[in-house]
């Protein structure tokens, strides 16, 4: 069959090409990235896109220069950043030990499991109006929402990490007569680290959702508010600018955690 020959002839290993061809990747990536921006610019320029709705890359750059130049955007960035950081930090500090405890003590785990999966399935943003009512319109309400959104991802991932400890590794510790404490520190904790990290990665993203939603619903500062406010003012360039900053923050964050995760890759169990 001719189709067979042509297929067999190309792409020797679809599983590894992403790592194999960094220069090709960069070339096509740059083409895709710049291409979209250029098309966008042209489309707006010739009137295919409405300027008020779609803006244009050049207008976004101009808006960025204005707002960064005047410094008007910094309070929004610092507000959002501190809401995110405080909520996420509390989530990590409370969530990781809680996840370890739930995963480690079988009966405790059983006891919490139904409750935990019910809470996990609940979209926490639905609680936003209640949180605002209870905690007011200040930073507290936003921190609470961020915390609620991030902590369960961290707990659930940590618990599943403790559960996925390799049974053979446990047997080795048992075989050499390791104490419970040593079993925990020498086997359970190290094998759970990759899971904790992926929990933190997911939790960090969820926390960002919390920041945005809280600021949409009630705020007078922050990137979420900046996007929302400029939307109602039909100032589309600033809407895109705000979205761009959030996306970039998300990418930087993800990469940072991935760098840490890669350090543990050599002994990372297979998970998806």
């Amino acid at each position: 069959m001719t189709a067979n020959a042509s297929v067999a002839g190309k792409a020797p290993s679809p599983r590894r090409w992403a790592f194999k061809r960094p220069s090709e990747r960069a070339l096509y990536g740059a083409m895709g990235f710049i291409g979209v921006l250029v098309l966008w610019e042209i489309a707006t320029d010739v009137g295919i896109f409405k300027k008020s709705l779609m803006s244009a890359p050049s207008l976004i750059v101009k808006a960025a220069m204005t707002d960064f130049g005047s410094g008007a955007i910094w309070p929004h960035i610092t507000t959002s950043l501190s809401e995110w950081a405080i909520g996420f930090a509390i989530g990590a500090v409370v969530g990781i030990p809680l996840g370890l405890i739930i995963g480690w003590f079988r009966r405790f785990d059983y006891f919490a499991s139904v409750m935990l999966s019910a809470i996990y399935a609940t979209p926490k943003v639905a609680l936003a109006p209640m949180i605002i009512l209870v905690a007011g319109i200040g930073i507290e309400a936003k921190v609470i929402l961020v915390l609620l959104l991030s902590i369960f991802a961290i707990i659930v991932s940590t618990v599943s990490g403790v559960h996925s400890v390799d049974r053979r590794h446990q047997q080795i510790a048992q075989s050499f007569g390791a104490s419970k404490r040593l079993l925990f520190t020498s086997v359970v904790l190290p094998s759970t680290i990759p899971f904790i990290l992926s929990g933190l990665r997911i939790g960090a993203g969820r926390a960002l959702v919390g920041v945005v939603v809280a600021e949409f619903l009630v705020a007078n500062q922050g990137i979420g508010w900046y996007i929302s406010f400029n939307g109602t003012m039909l100032n589309s360039a600033r809407v895109y600018l705000g979205i761009l900053m959030l996306g970039l923050f998300g990418i930087v964050l993800g990469e940072m955690i991935r760098v840490v995760e890669r350090r543990f890759d050599s002994w990372r169990p297979e998970i998806h």
Binding site: H169, A173, S179, S186, P190, S191, F264, S266, W267
Partner: peptide, 24 residues
């Protein structure tokens, strides 16, 4: 016990793996 294949703790160096029984 000497276990079947790949029974070393991947998060410990060889030395720490060998020392593990004594730490236990």
């Amino acid at each position: 016990m000497v276990f079947q294949e790949s029974a070393l703790f991947p998060w410990y160096s060889v030395l720490d793996n060998v020392a593990y029984g004594l730490v236990c």
